[in-house]
């Protein structure tokens, strides 16, 4: 691991240099909010952003992704489509890096997802630590996701006029190897880093009424709680909570043919456990016909099922589901209810 320093004055130069080597994706302003999108000019980059509408993990798992080029007259002539290009994700907040780490685990699980993994293997992540929580709904302090130990290639920490930069991987070091914008960190930079980290630690606070590791059992104990009925009465089943989640990965697959009725494409679309037909099976049986059951499932999936399968919660505490819910359903409030707060 190297410790470097990047002056903020050199960020435009860095953006231009990186843009020449790969597709550069970073936070951009969209009206009064932010989205991850391609950065082709330095002025498009908005590194000082609270959060984005969609998480950067969706860049690795795009909606309507083509999977197979179909031949209806000769199925054996159908060909799989696996695409990817060298991509740099710049300015990714720690919670979102951990969202990508969780998707890495899910899509590497058997059977491995060639589309995701090909794209991922060509992606470099330049993370950016947050100095303060971005919304009243963040659970990143409780979840321990406001800082990063691993899962990134480079990590930037804002020191005011400059960024402190940690390199984590060989790919990260190689990326900036020949660029003239970085210098080795001095003792004064390290001191400034210590001060920044102290300020940062003071600004993040616990928002949960109990220890986060009690969540799996607390949820299990609350399986029949009236909380779910109350939430279900408000839920519109619009699927926003899952579409904006950094770790949701469910998808549906559909074929579309061309007008020659011979050639076609099989694509996958993001799907959602909140859709009223998601758990419908042949014969019309529906395992979760009610919004209350679907909302409960969403929380159990994140905190119980994935915890039991992979050994960690699949909620990184980014707060998007709560902040963007039109019906004001707040994850932190539901967690606190089951934790007895």
């Amino acid at each position: 691991m190297k410790t470097l320093v990047l002056s903020k004055m050199d960020v435009p130069g860095l953006v231009e240099a990186l843009g020449e080597t790969a597709r550069l994706i970073g936070p951009r302003k969209k009206e009064h909010q932010f989205v991850f999108g391609q950065i082709t000019k330095p002025e498009q980059l908005a590194l000082e952003y609270p959060t984005t509408i969609l998480p950067p993990s969706r860049q690795l798992f795009p909606n309507d992704e083509p999977l197979v080029r179909l031949r209806l007259d000769d199925v054996a002539a159908s060909r799989e489509i696996v695409e990817g290009e060298k991509t740099i994700l710049l300015g990714v907040h720690p919670c979102d890096v951990q969202g990508i780490n969780i998707l890495d685990e899910v899509f590497s699980d058997s059977p491995p997802d060639a589309n995701y993994l090909t794209r991922r293997s060509q992606t470099i992540i330049i993370a950016l630590e947050c100095q303060a929580p971005c919304s009243p709904y963040n659970l990143c302090f409780d979840k321990g996701t406001y800082r990063l130990e691993w899962g990134y290639d480079l990590l930037m920490i804002d020191l005011g006029d400059r960024y402190f930069v940690f390199t984590r991987t060989g790919a990260g070091e190689e990326l900036i190897g020949d660029l003239p914008f970085f210098r080795a960190a001095t003792p004064a930079d390290r001191e400034a880093l210590g001060r920044a980290r102290e300020t940062q630690a003071g600004s993040f606070k616990t928002r949960l009424a109990g220890p986060v590791n009690r969540l799996p059992n607390a949820l299990k104990e609350a399986y029949d709680d009236l909380l779910w009925e109350a939430v279900g009465r408000r839920c519109l089943s619009c699927e926003t909570c899952t579409n904006v989640c950094p770790t949701c990965y469910c998808f549906d697959v559909a074929d579309e043919v061309e007008l020659d009725l011979v050639n076609g494409t099989r694509c996958r679309q993001w799907d959602s456990c909140q859709s009223c037909t998601f758990a419908e099976v042949a014969g019309g049986e529906n395992f979760r016909p009610r919004p209350s059951e679907r909302q409960r499932h969403r929380l159990f999936k994140k905190e119980v099922y994935q915890y039991e399968k992979y050994g960690r919660s699949a909620c990184v505490g980014c707060g998007r589901c709560s902040a963007q819910c039109v019906a004001s359903i707040r994850l932190n409030e539901m967690y606190n209810q089951v934790l007895g707060g």
Binding site: Q33, I53, L54, C238, V244, W270
Partner: peptide, 19 residues
């Protein structure tokens, strides 16, 4: 089977309720 919200989120739009 989805609501318009899903297509709107997919497009990365700022939610009109936020405006």
């Amino acid at each position: 089977p989805h609501a318009v919200c899903t297509e709107c989120k997919t497009a990365g739009n700022v939610c009109l309720f936020d405006k």
